[in-house]
Amino acid sequence: MASAPQLPLFYNGLEPLSSETHANYKVQPSTVAPFLANQHAIPLTVEEFPLVQRHMPIVFSSGDDAIPLALMGLNEGVNVFLDDSGKLLEETIYVPAYVRRYPYMLARLTPDAQELSLCFDPTSPTIGAFDQGDALFENGQPTELTRNILQFNENFEQAAARTAQFMNEVRELGLLMEGEVSIQQDGVEQPFVYRGFQMVDEQKLVDLRGDQLRKISQSGLLPLLYAHLFSLSLMRDIFARQVRLGKMPQPQLTM
Rank of each mutant, 00 (worst) to 15 (best):
P57M: 09
D131R: 13
V80C: 05
V170M: 12
G179L: 10
Q252F: 14
V170G: 06
T31A: 14
A97P: 00
V193I: 12
F60V: 04
L224R: 13
G140P: 10
R244C: 04
L106H: 02
F239H: 11
G133H: 10
L175E: 07
D201K: 05
P223E: 10
E20W: 10
L44F: 04
K247L: 14
S3C: 00
M1E: 07
L245R: 10
D186W: 06
D84E: 14
Y11R: 05
S217N: 12
I67D: 08
L106K: 01
R214F: 10
S231D: 05
H40Y: 12
G187D: 06
L69M: 13
N168R: 12
A2C: 01
T110C: 03
P251M: 07
G140S: 09
A135Q: 15
T123C: 09
L7G: 02
F10P: 00
P5W: 08
R108P: 02
I216H: 10
Q53M: 15
L150M: 08
V52I: 13
S219N: 07
F230R: 07
A113D: 15
V200M: 12
T92P: 02
K247R: 15
P251R: 09
G73H: 11
P111L: 11
P68D: 07
Y194K: 04
A97H: 05
E48A: 03
E157C: 02
V46F: 03
L69F: 11
L74G: 03
R195H: 08
D64T: 06
V200S: 12
L106G: 01
G128S: 04
